[in-house]
Structure formats: structure tokens, C-alpha cells
Design a protein around this nucleic acid. Structure first.
Lengths: 229, 229
DNA sequence: TGTCTGTGAATTTGATCAAAAATATTCAAA
DNA sequence: TTTGAATATTTTTGATCAAATTCACAGACA
């Protein structure tokens, strides 16, 4: 066994190409708030951090920039995007167009075990909030939603939604910093109820409300920064 | 001047990196029907075809696969996706969710010169149909729509829509093969009228109808092939 | 039918070149 | 002498290529 095989064993799931594991690491970093908006992302920095060659890192970065999760400046520098009001508005529009649709489709298809998994994620989410664990909140919230989205069996729409989450992932941490245990209605519970009673319209509605709540919170959290276009 | 600089001069627009020009070439090939659904796309084939190195080709391929324009099989092969009914249905849903929205937003923002450009594209489109020029039809149709989408000044939504077009681009040619000069209502003209009178709701409606018409035609053109999932 | 092996393509690395940013230097003017 | 702007130099980083490695498939053979 050579050095590389050993490395692969240590770092990642067996058999996956390096560029794939690098991609997933980076994606998780973006999704769960380990990168700040505006922060520069360098190829060579990542080759050291992730202990990978340059080519796999380049490919992962291209995938992420293609999805809008990272931004390619003119002078071949890559940064984590900073969202202005217009961007958040567009993301809200897109999420409202797609996620309620997915929730509606999922209602007829979802299995009991999926609902159980979603409940568990939601429990862990509540506990993360109670303990002020932002990272835990982000992870469980994503798990909750992505579980539902997967149940709709519409991979194209699902992929589009995942792209949207990648775009606002880094800005979530900023918003969650101010996330008091606000007394907003718990729409996840409504969603679960709708799924259990098989009411697609209600599930769709609950999802729309959840999206609105999240994105409006984000708009509020960002509105104070100057909006230089 | 060394060899590499010479190559750069000959091949591409000044100053653009090779991976960018490769990406654009490939994107246009996909968008305008030069690749068939199901066709395998090899890295080495492209390095020869486009006279580029391997790394730029790899990066362009990653971007396109990330957007869903190409499909990554488990065994490190890449093919042009073959759309089944479910995929077309999802694309229709997504287009109906986004493109009418963009048309509505564009109505208030669009300039006279943009409308002129759209009219010209539409004229060339009609002539392409009359002469049975499928490639010309695809190009002008894309130009017409992308001009409108750009006018909405919503780059995120615009990018999402472009991703959708990349997905069904290769399947357009197949459909257009059967495209008789059908006696369907000309929705582009309706759209132009709505834009000229500043009626956002009407523009949005016309766009929705145009999308429906296109995607239903696509469903019809594909329904005979067996739907192996 | 199942295993083995050869072939060709994808993956990955390391080296090299080019470009941009950061830093140092020079020189002139106050 | 000090300050500051313009310029030169160093350093960091990105882009590209060519070689070595790994992997998957297909055909040969038991």
C-alpha cells in the first residue's frame, strides 16, 4: 500500500475520488457556517488545509463557483459571496417557488421512517438552539429540510434547492448570531403535522411560511450593512 | 514569446483564461444542439477537439456537470443527459416558477433598445423556422429569452434559468426535428406587446404560456421512447 | 460462468510559467 | 529631515501542462 492509499483511508470514505471528497468538505464548510462572507478562498490554502493536490481542489472550487456558492472575482480571486438585499430577495423568491412545491410533492410519497428521522432532527435542532449551538442548529436544520426535499423524488428540483442553500449558508451564521430564542411560531411542527395527515396543501403552506420566516430574518439581520452595489 | 502565449493568442478572445473559453465552447455546443442526448463526453476527446490542455477541459466539465448540463456516471464517465418524463416535468415546473417571474420583473426595467433587439431576434427566428434551420432556431430563441431575462436585473434567478436551458438544450434538437411549422399561437409576439404596453402581468402570462408550449412539445416528442428509470 | 489480463481513459501529482499583490526602494518636494 | 508618490523587486497565488498512477471495462481463457 502506498502513501496515497493510506491517506485516502484516513481522510475520506473509501473509493471516492479525491476531488469528490474535497468538494464535500468544502460544501459542508460553506453550508454550516465555517466560512465567513467576504472571506477569500485560495487554492493553495485549501491544498494545505485539506492535504490534497491542486487539481482536485481546483475542480471542487469550479463546481462551487458554478453553483454560486463561491464568487469568482475578475482578478482570478475567489471569495465567499456577500449577499446584499437584492440577492436575498432573489433567493427568497426562488425558495418560495421551489421548496413549497417539493413539500407538496413529498407529502404523498414520504415514508413513516422519514418522518421519524425528521422529528429526531427537529428535536436535536431545538436542543441546539436551547444551548446556543449555532453550528448544531445549522446542521440539524439542513438535515430536516434536505430529508423532506429528498422524499419528493424530484432530483432536479432538489438539486436546485441545494444550490440555493449553498448560496445563503455563509450568511446564516451571521444571522444566527442575533438569533434570540424568538417567539416565532414553530413551523417545523406544523409541517410534520401536515405530512402525517397527508395534507399536501398544508405542508406546502407550512414550508412557504418557514421559508418566509427564515429569509425575512436574514433580511433584517443584514439590513444595517451598507448596500453598495 | 513562448509557445503558451502563442497558443493563447490564436485560440481565444484576448485575455480570457483557457478554461473559460473551453467552458463557453462546450456550453454553446450543449445549448445549440451540437451534442446528442446519451452521447459520451470524454476529456481526451475534447482536448483534441478544442486543442486545449487537460486541466482546463476538466474544469469546464466540472462546471457543466455541477449545473446538470452533463451527467456524471458512477464509473467516471460523463454523458449528455437523456431526459425522461419526470425530468421534463421537473424542468417545466422550475421554468414556470422562474421565467414568468423574470418576465414580470423585466417589464418595468426593460429599455426600448432591448425590445428592438428582441424583435430582431424574433424575426431571425421566424426566418430560421421557415428555412428549416434548426441550429438557427435554437440560437435565436435563446437570444430572445436570454435578452429578456437579463433585463430583469436579477442575476441569481437569471443564472438558475440558464442552468435549466443547459439541461434541456440537447433534447431540443431532437424535438425540433419533428417541429413542423405548427399553427400554434405566436407567444413571442404577445410577449413583445405586453412589454411595450408595460403590462407586467400580461408579460408574465405570455411567458408562462410560451414555456408550457415548449415543454409540452418536448414531452410529446419524447413520450414514445421507453421510460427506463 | 467466472477469473484474469490488457487496454485505454480518468485521476492525480509535481513542475513550470504568468500574473497579481505585497513589500521595498528611490527620488523629489516641502 | 521628512514625507509621499512613483517605481522596482519580491512573494504569493493562479493557470497550464506533461508524466505517472489508478481505475474500469472488455475480451481471452480456464
Amino acid at each position: 500500500m502506498n502513501i496515497q492509499a493510506e491517506q485516502n483511508q484516513g481522510t475520506a470514505k473509501a473509493g471516492l475520488p479525491v476531488h469528490e471528497t474535497v468538494y464535500r468538505s468544502l460544501r459542508d464548510m460553506i453550508l454550516f457556517g465555517e466560512l465567513e462572507p467576504g472571506q477569500p478562498v485560495t487554492i493553495q490554502g485549501l491544498t494545505e488545509h485539506l492535504d490534497a493536490g491542486m487539481t482536485p481542489v481546483r475542480e471542487a472550487l469550479r463546481r462551487l463557483t458554478a453553483a454560486g456558492a463561491l464568487e469568482f472575482m475578475g482578478n482570478r480571486r475567489i471569495i465567499v459571496p456577500v449577499l446584499n438585499r437584492s440577492a436575498i430577495d432573489q433567493l427568497k423568491t426562488a425558495r418560495l417557488a421551489l421548496e413549497p412545491e417539493l413539500a407538496g410533492r413529498a407529502t404523498a410519497l414520504i415514508k413513516d421512517e422519514d418522518i421519524v428521522a425528521m422529528k429526531q432532527a427537529d428535536d436535536r435542532l431545538d436542543r441546539a438552539i436551547a444551548r446556543g449551538d449555532v453550528h448544531g442548529y445549522l446542521v440539524e436544520n439542513y438535515l430536516f429540510h434536505s430529508h423532506l426535499n429528498a422524499a419528493a423524488q424530484a432530483p432536479i428540483l432538489q438539486g436546485m434547492v441545494e444550490g440555493l442553500w449553498l448560496r445563503f449558508g455563509p450568511s446564516m451564521r451571521v444571522v444566527c448570531g442575533v438569533m434570540g430564542t424568538s417567539s416565532l411560531p414553530d413551523l417545523h411542527k406544523d409541517l410534520i403535522n401536515a405530512l402525517e395527515s397527508g395534507d399536501a396543501a398544508a405542508a406546502s403552506k407550512a414550508m412557504a411560511e418557514d421559508v418566509k420566516q427564515g429569509m425575512d430574518q436574514m433580511l433584517a439581520g443584514i439590513s444595517d450593512s451598507i448596500d453598495t452595489e
